[in-house]
């Protein structure tokens, strides 16, 4: 079973031009900045918004081709969608919420009740069967919403930022559970993820949407190691450069040149891990060929390290230990010497 979604749609002054493919048995994470059109993309696949041109198909079945006549309404698509704010029906108990989809599809009350109970037990909420959504915690509600979607045995399961409404400590456990349920679901799985961590933890493949377009797709490993946009690089925590290699040197748009590992000439992308950047108070001697002075723009705390934003001809983010900051007497507005080994720079064709 394969989902092909190649379509355009216009909604609230936003224009989407999407091209996605997802296979049965794999989880595709959709990542991108706020307002990039991730949710609209899911809604188009679920049939909640109509596409303008293009086609959405599952195998040979056309769900929407923009003409209206081939539009399959959401209730007939067998697509499970877990909304960002769970959207459990407030007037129904957890059990009735999970039963809802089965009852709508004509399952007998007693059978639906049994299956709903089973699902709630499976997501670890057998205690909360009779509770109304208002009395559930964010994490519990999200589990009920997941059970509600899965209980209808959909062909596609779409999760829209399932972890955004829960706090960090619950998120950890919930993320693991969602991963388990996703792996147990034998259909096409799409997850809109807001954080890189969610995307990497839940997905096999990643599609990056920026400003309504898919800018990169690939396995988690591919996207992590070779981001193709500043957004993705930032997401995975890398410095990204776009430039051209000529005679073994990487030429950046501002005119700066960096020594990089041997690469054929041509347009390239290059990444540099923030921890691979060395900072000095004075010009360092020795092997690194890439050495230049740069002003310190800002210093931010990041878990056990400090992220130093550097300005100048080659803007970079470097990560150093707090001890190093003290030792180097780094301060915002001060200057520092930057040294990067050529071997730390990863170059790949643009």
């Amino acid at each position: 079973m394969t989902l092909h979604a190649r379509f355009t749609l216009e909604r609230d002054a936003m224009r989407l031009d999407i091209d996605l493919t997802a296979e049965r048995g794999e989880t595709l994470a959709i990542v991108g900045p706020n307002g990039a059109g991730k949710t609209s993309c899911l809604h188009a696949i679920a049939g909640l918004v109509r596409i303008k041109t293009g086609e959405i198909t599952v195998d040979d079945e056309v769900l929407d081709n923009g003409t209206g006549s081939n539009f399959v309404p959401p209730e007939e698509r067998h697509v499970g969608l877990v909304f960002q704010e769970h959207l459990l029906f407030p007037h129904l108990t957890a059990l009735d919420n999970v039963m809802f989809g089965m009852r709508a599809r004509g399952v007998e009350r007693s059978a639906a009740r049994a299956k709903a109970t089973e699902w709630l037990t499976r997501v670890g909420l057998s205690e909360c069967i009779g509770q109304r959504p208002a009395t559930l915690s964010g994490g519990q509600a999200q589990r009920v919403a997941l059970a509600r979607a899965l209980a209808t045995t959909p062909r596609l399961l779409l999760l829209d930022e399932p972890l955004s409404a829960v706090d960090a400590s619950t998120g950890l456990e919930l993320r693991r559970d969602i991963r388990t349920h996703l792996d147990g679901f034998d259909g096409i799985r799409l997850v809109v993820a807001h954080s890189a961590l969610d995307a990497f933890a839940l997905a096999d493949r990643i599609a990056v949407i920026e400003a309504g377009r898919v800018v990169q797709t690939g396995t988690v490993a591919e996207v992590c190691s070779q981001p193709r946009s500043p957004y993705v690089a930032d997401l995975v925590g890398l410095n990204l450069f776009r430039g051209a290699v000529r005679a073994g040197m990487l030429e950046l748009p501002g005119g700066s040149k960096l020594t990089v590992p041997p690469t054929p000439d041509g347009d390239v992308l290059a990444t540099l891990h923030p921890r691979a950047i060395a900072l000095y108070r004075t010009r360092p001697d020795g092997s690194p060929r890439n050495v230049w002075p740069a002003p310190v723009v800002s210093i931010e705390t990041a878990v056990d390290r400090l992220r130093v934003q550097l300005g100048g001809a080659v803007p970079l983010v470097a990560e150093v230990t707090p001890a190093a900051v003290a030792d180097l007497r780094l301060a915002e507005g001060g200057d520092v010497w930057v040294a990067v080994k050529a071997s730390e720079i990863t170059v790949y064709p643009a």
Partner: peptide, 27 residues
């Protein structure tokens, strides 16, 4: 209306959604 959308993705047609979701919620 997102609640009605949620009902639709669960397989509920407009008629059923109105009586089982919309009407109880605007009771």
């Amino acid at each position: 209306r997102r609640y009605a959308a949620a009902a639709a993705t669960l397989g509920s047609g407009p008629w059923r959604t109105f009586w089982t979701v919309t009407l109880p919620m605007i009771a």
